[in-house]
Computed example of a mutant assay.
Amino acid sequence: MNDMAQLIEPLIPALRRYARALLRDRAAADDLVQDGLERAVGRWHQRRADGSARSWLFAIVHNLAVNRMRQSSRRGPHLPLEAADGVGAGTPAQEQAWQHRDLLRALQALPEEQRSVVLLVSVEDLSYAEVAEALKIPIGTVMSRLSRGRERLRLAMEGAPAAEAAGTPHLRRVK
């Protein structure tokens, strides 16, 4: 039990960052991490002894997040009470805040599989192998998704047209 706590406890801040980046809602992210930790503790005996606890925990949180995102897409968008009242409406004037907002929007616009890889590699500093293990995909797929995700983020931050940033080719009529 002490071994489990020593492995899990240092990972909690990284799990919270990842969950917040995926869900963009502090309360929902904290609930997600709580559920993930509860699942990990309850199924600790199922963990592979030769596997990375870090990858295993990120896989649990990732899978729970995907399930929740699927549920919320079926249920429709959730409008927080603060948004309904217009409380907190106001845009920051600083350029850095605008860039941060634009980056979050561009990140949110990425397909889920690219967003997950970009967050795990770039924010959580997992190796390609750890990401591959956590998401149950080949390392080549990790590298491909990371490359495409970073390119889409770059194009979005440079103000590229939406179709170009989404990777959709421009179509033109040929006569």
Rank of each mutant, 00 (worst) to 15 (best):
Q114D: 10
L64N: 03
N63F: 07
D35R: 12
G140K: 08
G51M: 12
L11H: 02
E95Q: 14
Q94S: 14
R115W: 05
V118W: 02
A83C: 07
Y128H: 13
P169M: 10
L126M: 12
R115F: 02
I8D: 00
A84F: 11
L64V: 02
T91Q: 15
E113W: 07
M143P: 00
A19M: 02
A165D: 02
R152S: 09
A29M: 02
D85A: 15
H170R: 15
L171E: 13
G36A: 02
R173E: 13
D35V: 02
D25N: 14
G36D: 03
R152A: 10
L64G: 02
R173V: 12
A160M: 06
V41I: 15
V66D: 05
A97H: 08
V123H: 08
T91Y: 12
H78A: 13
P138A: 08
P169Q: 10
R74Q: 10
D125K: 15
S55C: 04
P80I: 05
P111E: 11
Q34C: 06
Q6C: 08
V66S: 03
H45D: 15
G167T: 04
L37D: 05
A21D: 09
I8Y: 01
V33H: 03
A14Q: 13
L32E: 02
V123G: 07
L119C: 01
V142T: 05
T141S: 15
E82W: 12
A53S: 13
D30W: 04
D50F: 07
V174S: 10
A53V: 15
M4Y: 08
R24D: 13
N2H: 13
I137T: 05
A49Y: 07
E158S: 11
A97N: 07
Y18M: 04
D31A: 06
L81A: 15
A89D: 15
L104R: 12
R173Y: 12
R16N: 11
G140P: 05
R17I: 06
Q108F: 09
G86I: 01
A49W: 06
F58K: 00
L146Q: 14
M4C: 09
E151H: 11
G42F: 07
D35C: 05
G76M: 03
E124P: 04
Q96A: 15
W56N: 02
Y18A: 02
L7T: 10
L11C: 05
R70A: 09
E124Y: 01
A29I: 00
S122R: 09
S116P: 02
H170A: 14
L120R: 00
D125A: 14
S127G: 01
M157V: 04
D25Q: 07
G140M: 06
V131T: 06
V121L: 11
P10W: 00
V142N: 01
L119N: 00
R105V: 08
A109N: 11
L7Q: 15
R24P: 01
P77Q: 11
P111Q: 09
L171F: 13
R101G: 08
P77H: 09
